[in-house]
């Protein structure tokens, strides 16, 4: 019987990592990142990675870990401002960045997972983002052609999952995870709660298990908060 459940992040990535591969990593800032899988990729020593992720972590946390080990050659992101080491490697020329508008990035990943090689969007027309790309008019308005993205490996985080790989996300930790789960040639998920089939309500499942090849139970992620903002009690 097929078994998707692996005992830990290192074993779940066995055979899936190669130098110079394209890796997608879920999360927005440090919210909803697959931290155990990121650490396992870092420890594997794989290098020359192109990493598709909205952000690049912060120093020492999330994808910041893989910057310290200089495993990332290129980032495909919409915003990378939170990371001193990133700035240094970028300014030193050790790291290249392809900036994508956040919605274009999300749609490129969604399209890649859905077998759509390219699509037109208004976003970025007349800006640096459109340079070198086809622009076509529809109904009198210009649109720029953007490509779908497929990754060699996608790593995602979910709140709950079952052994079949069905996933449920929690609050804004959903972000890029559902699209990335669909856009990896292989997809590995880490979940805070791993349950048996039948324990998730089928109507509530956000990522059907067909997209998930391997799954690990990571019960207590560190869940850092980047900007802790509060209001006084009345």
């Amino acid at each position: 019987m097929a078994n998707k459940v692996y005992p830990d992040a290192t074993s779940a990535l066995d055979g899936l990592l190669n130098d110079n591969m394209i890796l997608m990593s879920g999360g927005f800032g440090l919210c909803g990142i697959p931290e155990a899988l990121i650490e396992a990729v870092a420890h594997s020593g794989v290098k020359g990675l192109t990493v598709v992720s909205n952000n690049a972590g912060v120093d020492g946390i999330g994808l910041g870990v893989m910057l310290e080990t200089r495993q990332i050659a290129k980032m495909v992101s919409s915003y990378v401002g939170e990371n001193k080491l990133f700035a240094k490697q970028f300014l030193d020329g050790d790291l290249t960045v392809e900036f994508n508008p956040q919605g274009t990035l999300a749609e490129r990943i969604r399209a890649g997972g859905a077998g759509i090689p390219a699509f037109f969007t208004k976003t970025g027309v007349g800006t640096l983002v459109a340079e070198g790309k086809e622009v076509r008019e529809f109904d009198g308005e210009p649109y720029v052609l953007e490509r779908g993205i497929v990754a060699d490996l996608a790593i995602v985080h979910a709140w709950k999952g079952d052994t079949e790989g069905n996933l449920i996300y929690r609050k804004t930790a959903r972000n890029f995870n559902p699209m990335m789960a669909t856009a990896g040639k292989a997809t590995v998920a880490e979940v805070e709660h791993l349950v048996e089939p039948g324990e998730l309500e089928p109507d509530q499942i956000m990522t059907p298990g067909i997209y998930v090849d391997r799954i690990i139970h990571h019960p207590a992620p560190s869940k850092h908060i980047e900007q802790r903002t509060t209001r006084p009690r009345a």
Binding site: C31, E82, K171, K223, H224, Q227, R228, T229, R233
Partner: peptide
């Protein structure tokens, strides 16, 4: 609005990464 102190949820942030 922002949460009361002690009620921050790392899974509940805005686009500025604020709780």
């Amino acid at each position: 609005p922002f949460p009361y102190e002690g009620e921050e949820d790392a899974d509940l942030i805005n686009a500025g990464k604020q709780t």
